[in-house]
């Protein structure tokens, strides 16, 4: 087995994958922090109360849904 090739390709593929994800993740997380800062989450969860009632969950579950959809990346 060609170990040098394995290590080289591992480095190559991981580097390009992580670079591509960095380009997406950094603006996304900055945007989410901004939305948190202006109190957008509380506003939207108040609106989504009706939706979460629709699938027979308590209204408070809306905040959990918003958090899961937006900040789920930073666990």
């Amino acid at each position: 087995m060609n170990w040098a090739g394995v290590f080289l390709e591992t480095f190559e593929v991981s580097f390009s994958t992580i670079f591509k994800m960095t380009v997406i993740i950094v603006p996304l997380l900055i945007g989410i922090e901004y939305l948190k800062e202006i109190g957008w989450m509380e506003k939207l969860s108040a609106k989504l109360r009706k939706v979460s009632k629709l699938i027979e969950l308590p209204g408070e579950a809306a905040l959990g849904m918003i958090v899961a959809y937006s900040v789920g990346l930073v666990f």
């Binding site: 992580i18 994800m21 960095t22 993740i25 950094v26 997380l29 900055i30 945007g31 989410i32 922090e33 901004y34 948190k36 800062e37 990346l73 930073v74």
Partner: peptide
């Protein structure tokens, strides 16, 4: 927001 966001992004990466 930029500071906290990039801090989070660094941890995630």
């Amino acid at each position: 927001a930029v500071m906290r966001g990039s801090n989070n992004a660094f941890k995630v990466i």
